[in-house]
C-alpha cells in the first residue's frame, strides 16, 4: 500500500515532466518499471545510444532501495562502464548501502545518467567474466568488486 501510493505519485509526476534524456518505457504495475536513458553530451562512448533500465520495487519501497539493472531489450545494449557489469548489474552505492528513502526513480535515473556522462573509460569492471559467470543477478545480495575510484 505504502509503496503503491508513493509510486503512483511518482508516476503521475513522471508523466507530467522528466529531465532531458530520461523517458519512461513502461510502467504497467507497481513492481516493475522500465526507463530509457540517454547521454546528452557528445561523449563518444555513448553517443546516439539509448539504454534501458529495469526497476524492480519491493513492497517496502522507498524504505528499501529498488533493484536497478540495465537490460538488453528492443535493441538496447548494456553501456560500457567500469562500474557496470556486462549482465547489466550496476555498482552504485546509492542503490545499496547509501540508499535513502528520499531518492526516487527520477533521481536514480539522473545519477546513473551522470555516472555515464562523466565516464571516459571504455571498459568493464575487473572480474566481469567471473562475476557474470557466477550468475549473480541481484545487486542487493552482493558487495561489489571494485578497484578503481575514478568515476
Amino acid at each position: 500500500m505504502f509503496a503503491q501510493k508513493r509510486l503512483g505519485k511518482e508516476l503521475s509526476n513522471i508523466h507530467k515532466s522528466l529531465p532531458p534524456g530520461i523517458s519512461i518505457a513502461s510502467a504497467s504495475d507497481f513492481s516493475n518499471w522500465k526507463m530509457d536513458i540517454q547521454v546528452l553530451d557528445t561523449n563518444p562512448l555513448y553517443a546516439d545510444q539509448i539504454y534501458r533500465l529495469n526497476f524492480k520495487f519491493s513492497g517496502s519501497y522507498p524504505i528499501e532501495a529498488p533493484e536497478v539493472t540495465f537490460i538488453k531489450e528492443d535493441g538496447r545494449d548494456i553501456p560500457m562502464h567500469p562500474h557496470i557489469y556486462s549482465n547489466g548489474v550496476i555498482c552504485l552505492d546509492l542503490l545499496g548501502t547509501n540508499w535513502s528513502p528520499v531518492q526516487n526513480v527520477e533521481s536514480v535515473c539522473m545519477s546513473i545518467q551522470s555516472m555515464l556522462t562523466s565516464n571516459t573509460k571504455n571498459e568493464r569492471p575487473p572480474g566481469d567474466d567471473t562475476f557474470v559467470r557466477s550468475g549473480y543477478r541481484s545487486p542487493r545480495n552482493i558487495n561489489f568488486v571494485y578497484d578503481d575510484n575514478t568515476v
Binding site: 552505492d93 552482493i142 561489489f144 568488486v145 571494485y146 575510484n149 575514478t150
Partner: peptide, 17 residues
Amino acid sequence: LDVKQDMARFNEGLRYN
C-alpha cells in the same frame, strides 16, 4: 572476503572523490 574488502575500498575512493 575479497568482495567485502573491495567494496570497502571502493566506498573509500568514492568519499575521497
